[in-house]
Design a protein around this nucleic acid. Sequence first.
DNA 1: CTGGGTGCAAAGTATTTGCATGAAC
DNA 2: GTTCATGCAAATACTTTGCACCCAG
Lengths: 133, 133
Amino acid sequence: MENYTVLLHEHHLKATPQRLEIAYALDIYGHINIEKLYTILLQKFKTISLATIYKNINLMLDASFIQEVKIPDAKSVYELTKETHSHAICTQCSHIEDLSLNLNNIKENASSATQFQIKKADLIFSGLCKNCQ
Amino acid sequence: MENYTVLLHEHHLKATPQRLEIAYALDIYGHINIEKLYTILLQKFKTISLATIYKNINLMLDASFIQEVKIPDAKSVYELTKETHSHAICTQCSHIEDLSLNLNNIKENASSATQFQIKKADLIFSGLCKNCQ
DNA sequence: CTGGGTGCAAAGTATTTGCATGAAC
DNA sequence: GTTCATGCAAATACTTTGCACCCAG
């Protein structure tokens, strides 16, 4: 990833320095929670406020520029919107990894079991990452 | 389900009237958020406080008497601990359904893809329930 | 230039804590 | 009787809002 300005514009968001830095941080770190994002942005913008973070996160969510990932026993983190994928989180070090899994079969099973018209499946694994085992 | 006193004791929790009612409400409704739980308990205990709800929910979570279910774009709900299962939520009416799916295969795939030692998989489907389609 | 973004302060909402009283075991 | 739960009030944490000023397009 490189041109966050274009990416923001594609989502009908103005490319302010603060937003560019949020996009950059999400891209580099992969998954960040509000608190950490604030800490990171503070290094670049000495006077940035949490209100700005929250406003932008909410706008970016509305614009589908980013996605929220709800994690068991932890605060939500945010990531740039990419192809659909699942997550694995380490209960020891909190490291989060993306993974692509084919969920078509399981979606069909769920659909016939529930009679739901299923639109998406959020799947998150918890365990120990390679380093923490 | 019937004897919530025994069930509470099995989890090393005293069987107070408030807790019995929480257990009953969770059993009947299946999945409830804090706010709704408070509303329900208020009918039985005119002076119950939200603090009591929160304290009990946290104790019950610690004791694995109940589980939290994090839902996309909505507040968490709680359910009595049962066999491992997945959830489907209707984006229209918020109805939540439990379903049993065999995730062994997908867990193995995730394990080899991430090198994680996987302990659990939380899977939640979003879509339209039979009534809302 | 103009619409929208930023930062600050304040408000609003959600959750936790301390403590005196009361109930479970 | 002893331990722990309850309910209230207050404190803390989290998130949103209003507004004056400023910047991206």
